[in-house]
Design a protein around this nucleic acid. Structure first.
Lengths: 340, 340
DNA sequence: TTGTAAGCGTTATCAG
DNA sequence: CTGATAACGCTTACAA
């Protein structure tokens, strides 16, 4: 691999001139510039970016901490991140963390070891151990956000979205609305559950903790949650899952129990993943601007890194209630229990 | 950020000793080592990896060129890549290329600019322009492989897998078996179509080009392909899609046409993505060891980079025919047209 | 407009 | 066992 020195030798100029000819072309004479360009060509020269980064004391690389790359929602967020980063001239180091604190800390260490300039964290957890915490903190927290994030953040108003969905179900006449929740610790779960309670309270409906099922955002847990709910003596007339993946599992569980959606039971998801509209029936859900999360995260992180002021440190992105065919009015046998 | 010099100053030793204390602890005296470690602690020192890479003239980073990160099959491959890379002490630069030659060439350039040591290419395309092609080529081609790859490769025996699936359908009594294909240019498409023809020929069935529909691996194209096939006067009794995502779209198309799977028509996919078993009915498909592709690619690339001999330069990974509920025998009305 | 030379942080070599 | 020093490739004062 030829270095700048080789080019300088070929062009009969100093290395400084080569550098200038490439980085500030207008400051060298046209003839020199041409000679350098030719030499670059014949030498097959490519600047050594590692050397450039080393000298510049920054890499223009961003670390992205993703709990699970295979999750289709995160995949969309990542797509947005990549696009925005490329546009801004930054590279992306994608790290699959499985939500493991240790692994996250390790990857966050890329900033300490100056392999990257900043971190985009897609989980509600601070990956920087108190011991080696860069100042100012080059981080942005997106999607699942800490309660008091030590950095800029971008999230959905999960509580409002869940309230809207629950109100949609209530509006259809549902009174026994179950919820299959996400991971216990997640703020997402807490906020969506809060929105669900908000809607119940607002409609004057009793909150019944036995209508809540635990889950972990996987189809398997949705399946299990649905089966458990259907075994109750008084089964719910609607199930609201905190993610589409769980709803897809729940849908299978409901069908295997011999019930129909939405005739016998309504089903709602959250996220609007690609397969939601290919479900049978297509899934009513909340659509999130996944790619926008990624773009916004990159823009804000770069602003932090380049010490530009942020107009909003904590952004809320809009959602949409997408009513498809998996939710409908309660059937004649599912309404309020007749008196007597 | 403190450098090795700061640590040396604090410990009252030379920078060389600090470096040794950290990298070859057994070569410095215990007391010195202890003093250095203490100094590292109080200085909050982290080695500057950029400097290390610069000096070592290698990064221990691998570039992965992914056509579409949001594709669930690739997501699994990536998961395998990450695991294997981490185990081997390599980092991963994940690049979403959308199958764009320009973008790929740009990312492959990370090797030329020494931001990465090698490339894992998941598409049948050589990302290195002839002009700047490193020698020896630090690349591995996995999943969708070039016909004469200029580097080690890992792939499925797509032709055999498609033949197996087609034979499964023929064994069920199907005679009019349609295929919804992947992108025209892809070797995957060509090989799977070849396997389909193999099976037809072997069973003495006529090959009917009008039973082939174009597609691009998206659910949308599967939907469109299915609708087109069902409009034929003599509709097929089975549809074999070259990917599960297309099969999921096709399934919706079939249902919307008022037909049942598998009663009226059998449907098969390819890949065994997570949602395949959550389809209604669960999808018969070919399962691929996606994570193994990733791991094998990393292992082979590292062998290339570290100039270790490869026992097999071109690996074939095993598939499994997964018979679920979307394929069944032909119905009484779907058999060979009665005479007269 | 161009050249000289320092310096980024690390490690390897060589001398002590 | 430890220290001094050169070198990796590049950019940028500063000098010419």
């Amino acid at each position: 691999m030829s270095s700048i020195r080789e080019v300088a030798r070929l062009a009969g100029v100093s290395v400084a001139t080569v550098s200038r000819a490439l980085k500030q072309p207008d400051v060298v004479s046209p003839e020199t510039r041409q000679r350098v360009l030719t030499a670059v060509e014949t030498a097959g020269y490519h600047p050594n970016l590692t050397a450039v980064q080393f000298r510049a004391q920054r890499t223009r690389n961003l670390v992205v901490l993703v709990p699970k790359i295979a999750n289709t929602f995160y995949a969309r967020v990542i797509t947005g991140i990549q696009q925005a980063a490329q546009r801004a001239g930054y590279g992306v180091l994608l790290c699959n963390t499985q939500g493991d604190d240790q692994v996250e800390a390790g990857y966050a260490g890329l900033v300490n070891s100056r392999q990257a300039d900043g971190v985009i964290q897609l989980r509600a957890h601070d990956p920087f151990p108190a011991s080696n915490r860069p100042q100012p903190l080059p981080m942005v927290n997106a999607c699942e956000v800490l309660d008091a994030p030590p950095c800029p953040s971008i999230q959905l108003d999960n509580r409002a979205a869940a309230r809207d969905m629950t109100e949609h179900l209530i509006g259809l006449g549902h009174r026994r609305i179950a919820m299959i929740k996400g991971p216990r610790r997640s703020p997402l779960t807490r906020d969506r559950a809060a929105g669900y309670r908000d809607a119940l309270a607002h409609a004057g409906l009793a909150y019944d903790a036995t209508l809540l099922q635990p889950g972990d955002f996987t189809p398997q847990s949705g399946y299990a949650g649905a089966r458990a709910l259907l075994e109750r003596s008084e089964r719910p007339t609607a199930i609201f899952c905190e993610s589409d993946e769980m709803a897809i599992g729940a849908l299978q569980g409901i069908k295997q129990a011999g019930l129909r959606v939405p005739d016998d039971i309504s089903l709602a998801g959250f996220d609007d993943i690609e397969f939601a509209r290919y479900c049978d029936p297509p899934l009513t859900t909340i659509s999130q601007p996944a790619e926008d999360f990624g773009e916004a995260a990159v823009d804000m992180l770069i602003a932090v890194l380049e010490q530009q002021p942020l107009d909003v440190a904590h952004r809320i992105l809009p959602y949409r209630l997408l009513i498809r065919d998996s939710t409908a009015g309660v059937g004649p046998n599912d309404g309020p229990t007749p008196a007597g």
